[in-house]
C-alpha cells in the first residue's frame, strides 16, 4: 500500500458516494448513463471472483463495497428512479466495448484459466466503461455539476493508480503490464473531460462543452 493507491481507492469510494447521494437527494438519475453503470457492475463481478478463494481485509472489504454499491445503483436506476432515466440519450453501442474487451482477454491473458481471462476482460472493460457516460454528456452538451464531480472522482481513481504503479515498480519491481496499459488508456479517455472540468467547473462555471 502506498499513498497514491490509497488516494486512488478513496477517490473511487468518493465517486460512488457522490453518485448515490446525487440520485437519492434529487430522486433522479437524469444525466447518468445506465449503460456505464451496468458495465461497471460487470467489471466488478468478473474481476472480484477471487473473493471466493482469497481474503485480505482491505481488498475484500472494498471489493464487496464496489459490487454492492454498483448493484444498488442499478437497482435505483431500474426501480424507484426508472422514470427519470431517458434511454434515448444513452445510445452508445456497448456491444463493441464488451466484444473488444472479450477478444483482448481471450488473446492475451496472463494464463488461460477462466478466472484469469475474466480478470483480463474486466481490466480492459473498465478502461472504456466510462465511454457511454462521456458520450451522453457530449450529446446533451452540458452536465449537472454534481455529475461532473462524479465523473472526475472516478477518473482520478485510475489516474492515481499510475503513480502507484511507478512507485511499486521502483520500490519492489512490481510490474503488471496489462493493468498499466489499460489504466493509461483509461486516463487518456478522461483527459478531455479533466481539461474542461478544470477550466470550467473548478472556476465556478457550468459544465458546458465548447
Amino acid at each position: 500500500m502506498n499513498i497514491f493507491r490509497l488516494a486512488g481507492d478513496l477517490f473511487h469510494l468518493i465517486s460512488i458516494f457522490i453518485l448515490i447521494h446525487k440520485m437519492t437527494t434529487s430522486k433522479s438519475c437524469s444525466g447518468i448513463s445506465f449503460k456505464s453503470q451496468a458495465l461497471y457492475l460487470l467489471v466488478y463481478v468478473t474481476r472480484y471472483l477471487d473473493l471466493f478463494w482469497t481474503f485480505a481485509l482491505y481488498n475484500s472489504t472494498m471489493k464487496i463495497i464496489f459490487i454492492g454499491s454498483s448493484a444498488y445503483v442499478l437497482h435505483l436506476m431500474t426501480g424507484p428512479f426508472k422514470p427519470t432515466h431517458d434511454p434515448n440519450i444513452d445510445t452508445f453501442k456497448v456491444r463493441y466495448l464488451i466484444g473488444g474487451a472479450a477478444i483482448l482477454a481471450l488473446l492475451f491473458p496472463y494464463k488461460w484459466t477462466p478466472a484469469e481471462v475474466l480478470w483480463t476482460f474486466s481490466i480492459w472493460l473498465e478502461s472504456v466503461a466510462i465511454l457511454p457516460q462521456l458520450f451522453m454528456v457530449q450529446r446533451t452538451g452540458a452536465a449537472e455539476t454534481i455529475t461532473t464531480h462524479y465523473i472526475f472522482a472516478l477518473g482520478a481513481y485510475r489516474a492515481l493508480y499510475i503513480p502507484n504503479w511507478i512507485y511499486r515498480y521502483l520500490t519492489s519491481t512490481f510490474w503488471d503490464p496489462l493493468s498499466i496499459i489499460a489504466g493509461v488508456i483509461q486516463t487518456v479517455l478522461y483527459s478531455d473531460f479533466f481539461y474542461i472540468y478544470y477550466t470550467k467547473v473548478l472556476q465556478g462555471r457550468k459544465f458546458e462543452l465548447p
Binding site: R5, A56, N59, Y110, Y161, F174, W175
Partner: peptide, 10 residues
C-alpha cells in the same frame, strides 16, 4: 523484471 500478476489491487 518478470510480470507479477498478483492481482493485489482493486
Amino acid at each position: 523484471v518478470t510480470p507479477v500478476p498478483g492481482h493485489d489491487e482493486l
